[in-house]
Amino acid sequence: MTQPPTPDERRPANDGPKAAARNRSALITAAREIYAAHGLDAPLSAIARRAGVGQGVLYRNFPDRAAVATAVLEENVRQVEQAAAADDATLADVLGVMTWHLTESAAFIGLLHAEGAGGHSDIRAYAVALSERVERGLRGHLTQGHRLGAADDLMLAVAMVSGAVTGPTREERERRARAAWRLLGVEVGPVRPFEA
């Protein structure tokens, strides 16, 4: 016969909404890492394992593959928008945040090339809308006469840089991204996530 646990042995209190927010954040971070290594077709079970949660927690937060991918993309775009909205932001600062996301997330690169969503038509339309938000954030920091100011030049330059972001390590991808921006004659600030 088992004895009831003593007060010292009881389970920790359920954190409720705090745990839910923490789990969702961990799943988005894990998905970004898994997608960077394996692309959008990576198994969802790998994302749950990386986040340290069960698959049930993943499906409570994200009912399907498209929901996971769009959550990662939304977080990436939100950070670019926050960087663009900062009071003292420059184009170089915003490009630094965007470049960080390029080096961290294969899914973000796919977003910036809306056709990169490939057979994921459920993600494609959303990706186009998010790409437009990124462009608005960047374009708001172009000065009069900037070399990327012409209609399609800005996003063409972003596509060219994102195409150069290859390599086995984040450091190598960042080195290549910086080199691509340099070849385009565009200054990039510190490559890092946006921190409020």
Rank of each mutant, 00 (worst) to 15 (best):
G110Q: 13
P4S: 09
A21I: 12
V128D: 10
L156F: 12
L44D: 09
G110C: 10
N61A: 15
Q144S: 14
L102R: 03
V94I: 14
R60W: 07
F194I: 05
T99P: 01
P7C: 02
G116A: 08
E172F: 00
A157G: 03
S45A: 15
S45N: 08
A107H: 06
A179V: 01
I47D: 06
D93E: 12
T2K: 11
G39S: 13
L184E: 06
A179C: 03
A89D: 14
A20G: 05
V53F: 04
T70L: 12
A48M: 04
V94N: 08
E171F: 10
E115M: 08
S131R: 14
V57F: 03
Y35D: 07
V165G: 04
G185H: 11
A67S: 15
H146W: 05
M98T: 13
R133H: 03
V186R: 03
A92R: 04
D93R: 02
D122N: 15
V80L: 13
R136W: 00
F108K: 00
E9D: 13
E104L: 01
A19I: 06
E75H: 08
G149F: 06
A36I: 05
V72Y: 02
L112K: 06
D152S: 13
A36K: 07
R175G: 13
L91Q: 09
G52C: 06
L138F: 01
A85V: 03
G163R: 07
D87Y: 01
P5C: 13
R11I: 02
A92L: 11
T103R: 09
A20S: 12
A150S: 12
R173S: 10
A69M: 03
H120I: 09
A21H: 08
R176L: 14
R182E: 14
G116F: 00
E195G: 04
P17F: 13
I34V: 15
A84W: 07
H113S: 13
A106L: 11
V80P: 10
H101M: 07
M98Y: 02
R78C: 07
R133N: 09
T70V: 14
L73T: 10
A179M: 14
L138H: 04
R11V: 08
I28L: 11
Q82I: 02
A69R: 07
E174R: 15
G137W: 00
D64A: 13
G167A: 10
V77R: 02
L156E: 14
G167E: 12
E174K: 06
L138S: 06
G16R: 11
R192T: 14
L184Y: 12
S25F: 07
T6L: 15
A117T: 05
A127V: 08
H113K: 11
A92Q: 07
L112F: 02
V53E: 01
R11C: 05
A66L: 05
A31S: 12
A19C: 05
G163T: 04
R170W: 05
T2C: 02
W181M: 05
A92W: 06
D41Q: 08
N23Q: 15
G119R: 06
E115T: 15
T166N: 10
Y35E: 08
G54M: 05
Q82K: 05
